[in-house]
Amino acid sequence: MFRTLLARNSLGASARSVLRAPVPVTGAAVPRFVGNPVAQPARRAYHPKVIDHYTNPRNVGSLDKNLENVGTGLVGAPACGDVMKLQIQVNDDTGVIENVKFKTFGCGSAIASSSYMTELVRGKTLDVASQIKNTEIAKELSLPPVKLHCSMLAEDAIKAAIKDYRSKRKSTVLK
């Protein structure tokens, strides 16, 4: 199945329009997605969860990196040329991540990994968020071994964002 995912590049525009086709999503997996009722054509190259995060990435955008309570993580995968920026806005009193945005310039798996990561960390405390492992993302999105590094990039990005926030607000961060 993922062979097709990787070969998508060579399929060009037609494949891309397939990707944009409405995709049924199981409610349990991605609760916030309001599914399109139109049935999915028989052809399906991606794992549904990857398609969903890829076609409807959550929390895309930027936060003001100059704000005191915003931590920015900027990481890259120099082997494949991907760049990922993940930003968190933290409640200084509770240590809870109240807002999160990302921008990823990379392949579909990297976009899906970072999108899913933003969903995971929203509402969590920094301590809990920093414990999230890439394997959790890879498992949820069923990433094939060659795309594991995309989920590692997302783990690195949240860790970098937390580190940046903590270095900004050393005195007020909760234990």
Partner: peptide, 27 residues
């Protein structure tokens, strides 16, 4: 082997500004 994640990362770390420049142009 720069196609190796680990190797390429170690090399990339020597230039932390690079990612900023790349992100900037992408944005």
């Amino acid at each position: 082997d720069l196609r190796n994640e680990q190797t390429s990362r170690e090399i990339a770390q020597q230039d932390p500004e690079l990612l900023m420049r790349v992100l900037d142009v992408h944005e």
